[in-house]
Design a protein around this nucleic acid. Sequence first.
DNA 1: TCATATAGGGATAATTTTATCCCTATATGA
DNA 2: TCATATAGGGATAAAATTATCCCTATATGA
Lengths: 138, 138
Amino acid sequence: MIRKYILIPKFALTKLICMQERKIPKDLTCGMSMIMDIIGGKWKPCLIFNISQGYRRPSQLQRLNPKATRRVLNQQLKELEEHGVVRRVVYAELPLKVEYFLTEIGESLMPVIRTMDNWGSQYLKDPYHLPMVREMAS
Amino acid sequence: MIRKYILIPKFALTKLICMQERKIPKDLTCGMSMIMDIIGGKWKPCLIFNISQGYRRPSQLQRLNPKATRRVLNQQLKELEEHGVVRRVVYAELPLKVEYFLTEIGESLMPVIRTMDNWGSQYLKDPYHLPMVREMAS
DNA sequence: TCATATAGGGATAATTTTATCCCTATATGA
DNA sequence: TCATATAGGGATAAAATTATCCCTATATGA
């Protein structure tokens, strides 16, 4: 008998569909949307920063970001890896040891992140960014 | 008789609550999270860019971003205004005329946005950012 | 008179993103 | 033996963000 159907885990299908067609497809045609897709996750800039500082192991990263759940950090590390920003190295030891390193692409991202962080810090220091009254021109 | 209760529109209350306490409060203590809060909206970089190019009227901005609904563009313009990035000017004419201008803060954001866009464009050009095989260290 | 332009936003649905909880497995130290 | 450490991810709930639809109002041109 020839098998006409194949049984696969539900999550595998979900993932396949997600990769190819989200309900609202991402438009990654310009540089800005591309970089936002890469570093836009809630904890991604933190992770990139921590790793650049030499904190490479997942457990360290979790301790450095206590407000984030392990789950989310793992998810975002995986996305960073898929985008080629970090490299994940598994050591054949027991207990398990894993380390994340910035790739060349990841390193090239650092000046951009610093630029962004500097601007934001300046904004936070300066009180003149308070909501302003809507003005009427005559 | 003394009034003990006051009737207010539901949306007004919702808005008050949203401003003061979201369910999960934003942590805007570092520069990075601050700037992400300011430019992180789906259409905000586009709007800032368009306005910097001299497209100031809402109808122009809508035509330039046909994939966005008018609703979202208005929302995000309002948030940019509240963050002091753009200034909204209403002209006392009929039919209505409104224009958005970059503030000094908004202008200071331009180099940051250009830096980000350049990085993203470079990333898009370079094919070596493809997902890599997970490697094992010995 | 009717369609279109200008500008804006409420109500709600859909979608995406995060959070919460629970499970796997092995090694170490109390 | 039991708690803790290492690392990871499925299932689902909650929250936040966007999308869709419909409403206001005035002026202009066909």
